[in-house]
Design a protein around this nucleic acid. Structure first.
Lengths: 226, 226
DNA sequence: ACGGATCGTCAAGGTTCCCTCAAGGGGTAT
DNA sequence: ATACCCCTTGAGGGAACCTTGACGATCCGT
């Protein structure tokens, strides 16, 4: 059903939760440390991250903040710490749900379903329309004024990333993180080149853009032409 | 901030929650019965519904299903029933979160923030309006009387910095610190030049300002014209 | 009213950033 | 193995932008 990243250092709980999620049909990747969890959360593009707060190498809140810095993936926290101010601080740091150990597996699964359901509703659009541009997410196809565009994989991902935030200016660094999955390294020239190719296929030039407007010194945004 | 419908028959709890939400800046509509709650949830198009399960006229799960039949509004359940199968059943009926009484108001508010945050991510349009001037932060666009202004990066940042404190006089040194990121060095003449360009694009002159008023010897402020 | 300080505008210079072309390497299918 | 597609990287030219200095105008305190 969905790819889920589980970050939990306790072996017994990790097994318990992972097995339960797998039994629901989810694809579960586990990590025992914050750093491994962060790597999974970035690289695997999961639909949900479930994490413990008490990790051996890093405070859970640090991990949460690092995930939030590069992704808006839903995060569910499961932990033994039940103090009210910890709950509030964690939720305000960007967590979507907070479950206190010991918890029932049935309730955990129900909360996972609730979070996934809401996440799916928000981006339930399988098709994004920007002016005369139609982007079919599941088919990985894009069409301009009815005629299909022949886009390479990266070109499509780039266009989709921009379309998902149409009208907003997106920095190249964000695009490197989102499309290329390289939040730190990576050359911004690469983004430039792909943008150039996209523009060519969209039948526009950088000096006379219709859809892809670059904001000097900031980034680029996808807009619907006048 | 957001319109919230609260369905709760216990007067004391209703007051407590409604006051806390109002203190956060929300617009709260309350109902004591399921039927009244349903009516509010449909008619007022709230951003969130908070409901008790133990209502006098109808089982909470019935109400939840009726809301779900016509709306995808987020629903948070607060109730004294903590049995695990009830929690699971309620979440699977479409609830987004489940909080067991007695609960801390701080945690309730944090969970409300979490639910609203996720729901609002899709359409995060933050804009500042000053008279006939509309500044769209995420699109990095400014429009005067409906026609878009073509601003350079620094011009936009400068306008935004002033708009964020509209009506207040801001010193050039503060602007150098905020826009130019140079709290110590930097020439104030630079600010002057950019202000001049801004004024030109805003269609006004320094001697007859409409939006950008300079206070001699102090700084400049962005005001809405009479 | 006068002088010093502050502000407004212009033009030029230099810097930064962006776009595009072309070459090279990795992967995959034929 | 070869051919093809795709991605990455570097370099050059060009465009956009920012800064700076100068000069005139305006403002304020004396």
């Amino acid at each position: 059903m969905a790819r889920i990243t589980l970050v939990e250092d306790d072996l017994e709980i990790r097994r318990l939760v992972a097995d339960a999620l797998a039994a629901e049909g989810h694809d579960v990747e586990t990590a025992a440390t914050a750093m491994n969890g962060l790597e999974l959360a970035i690289r695997n593009d999961p639909a949900l991250v479930i994490m413990d707060l008490g990790l051996p190498d890093l405070d859970g809140n640090e991990l949460l903040r690092m995930i939030r810095a590069v992704s808006s993936v839903p995060v569910m926290v499961i932990t033994a710490r039940g103090a009210d101010d910890v709950v509030v601080r964690t939720l305000d740091a960007g967590a979507d749900d907070y479950l206190i150990k010991p918890f029932s597996v049935a309730q955990l699964l129900a909360r996972v379903r609730a979070v996934l359901r809401r996440g799916g509703l928000a981006e339930g659009t399988d098709r994004i329309v920007v002016g005369g541009l139609v982007i079919d997410i599941s088919a990985r196809e894009a069409a301009l004024e009815g005629t299909s565009l022949d886009l390479s994989p990266k070109e499509f991902d780039l266009l989709r990333a921009l379309a998902e935030r149409q009208g907003e200016v997106v920095t190249k660094r964000d695009l490197l993180a989102e499309v290329w999955r390289e939040p730190y390294g990576g050359s911004e020239r690469t983004v430039d080149v792909h943008l150039s190719w996209l523009r060519k296929k969209l039948g526009e030039t950088a000096s006379d853009p219709r859809y892809l407007k670059t904001i000097h010194g900031v980034g680029v945004k996808l807009v619907s032409p006048d």
